[in-house]
Amino acid sequence: MPLAGQTLHLVGRIQGLTRRRLEQLVRSRGGRLATRPSNRVTIVAFGHSAVAHALDDGRVKLPPGLPATAALISENVLRRHLGLLEPPPEIERGMGRTEVERLAGLSPNLLSCLVLFDVLEPVDERFAYRDLVAAREAARLLKRGVALGDVLIAAVALRRRGSHLAEARLTEGPSGALVREIGDQLAELSGQLTMRLEQTARSLDELLVEAEEATERGDLAAAESLYTTAMRADAADPVLPFNLGNVFQSQGRAPEAKIAWQIAVARDPAFAEAWYNLALAAEDETQTDLAVAEYRRAVQAQPDYADAHFNLALLLTKLDRCAEALAIWERFLELEPSSRHASTAQKAIALCRMRLQQERKDPSLRSG
């Protein structure tokens, strides 16, 4: 289902995306991101972090206020709608839903839940053999008494580490945690991953809500503690160190803020907002070449990032690098023709053109 004309509500989080960026992406596809549940919502997307909404019988709890008629989609489906994920591989998908349910021994609700959390990824309701293998492994664990939420958490953890439930045989270890069976040995899901750690991830959404609320009420010490805990629970999501860096910045702890934003871009080199904050910090320290480079990283990562274009163009103009600034000013006006900064951009364009014309007449005026 395309997003154009739709109102989307997100349950949980999309790893690596701030809400600001998600809202921009949805809007660029012609849709609208709902700030809260309402009867106007037409699509409900479930992030991988929202497994606590899955009941053991496969039904999924919807937040109050959402219409029962809304379409439910998974995190990966949403990512594909937003252009953040490649289409599913072109492999043979010869099985229908009823056949997979029968061969795996799963109810329709359980199969739908596995699809909603991307354990299975059908295309047009057609399933591949790997989907059947993953469905059978999930069914085996469920019959042994493993909670559905734990199966979903383990499947998501495996996918984030380049594996898949179809490629792993899981069992409960001596501590009760799900571990992998490799020959006659038991191994954790990935070196350091245990269900104890993933159990924290199950409540990560609640942790982040508490951190955001602490930030809003000015309790920055609490926000710092909560974001630090969240980073220990999820060592991959770049939004967590990004938010922690913002907390440090609000506390006047600029060096620590920079480190946190650097962790964010190390986790995701295409995290435009973190590059933008690093560029601002470099400008504050009069490291202009570094600031230019980091603004460029921001606009490369997010070509529609108007604020980054504006700041980069303004800095290049101040540095008398008008040939570089001119194209960026023009791009800013394409992005934000009605912005409150549009008049500044128009004046800067006129100034840059005048300087370039003067340089053509008198090459000695060229900077550098």
Rank of each mutant, 00 (worst) to 15 (best):
R340C: 01
V292R: 02
R296K: 09
S343K: 11
L315A: 11
Y276T: 00
E334A: 13
T317M: 04
A291W: 05
L335G: 03
L278P: 14
A301S: 09
Q300E: 11
A279C: 11
R353Q: 14
A298C: 02
I328H: 15
A279R: 11
A301W: 00
W275E: 03
E294D: 02
T344E: 06
L280R: 15
D307Q: 11
A279E: 03
A272C: 02
D289R: 12
S343G: 05
V299N: 01
D307P: 06
A345P: 10
H341L: 10
Q300A: 12
L351H: 13
A325W: 10
T288S: 14
P337T: 06
W275V: 03
W275R: 08
E324V: 04
E285F: 04
E330R: 13
A293Q: 12
V299M: 00
L319Y: 07
S338K: 14
L312M: 09
Q302I: 00
D289H: 15
P337Q: 07
I349F: 08
V299W: 00
A342N: 02
L335W: 03
L280E: 11
C352K: 15
D289T: 14
R331K: 13
S338M: 09
P303M: 01
A308P: 09
A313H: 05
N311K: 11
E324A: 15
L290N: 04
C322P: 10
Q287T: 03
I328T: 09
R296W: 02
W275H: 15
A306E: 06
A306C: 02
D289E: 15
L316G: 03
E285K: 14
I328S: 05
A279P: 14
T344D: 11
A279I: 10
E334M: 15
R297Q: 13
A293Y: 03
S343C: 02
A301L: 03
S338N: 14
E273W: 04
A291T: 11
S343D: 12
F310L: 12
L333F: 08
L316E: 05
K318Y: 08
A306R: 07
L351G: 07
C322L: 10
P337E: 03
R297G: 00
D304N: 02
L335Q: 03
D284S: 15
K318R: 15
E330P: 11
A293M: 12
P303H: 01
E285P: 04
E324N: 13
L316H: 12
D289A: 15
E336Y: 01
A323N: 14
A345C: 08
F271N: 00
D304G: 00
L326R: 14
E324T: 05
T286D: 13
V292G: 07
V292H: 08
D320P: 12
F332A: 13
A325T: 10
I349V: 12
E294W: 15
W329L: 07
L326G: 08
F332Y: 12
D284L: 07
L333M: 05
R353N: 08
S339Y: 08
F310S: 00
A327P: 04
A350G: 03
Y305D: 01
V299G: 02
A301R: 04
K347T: 08
A323Q: 15
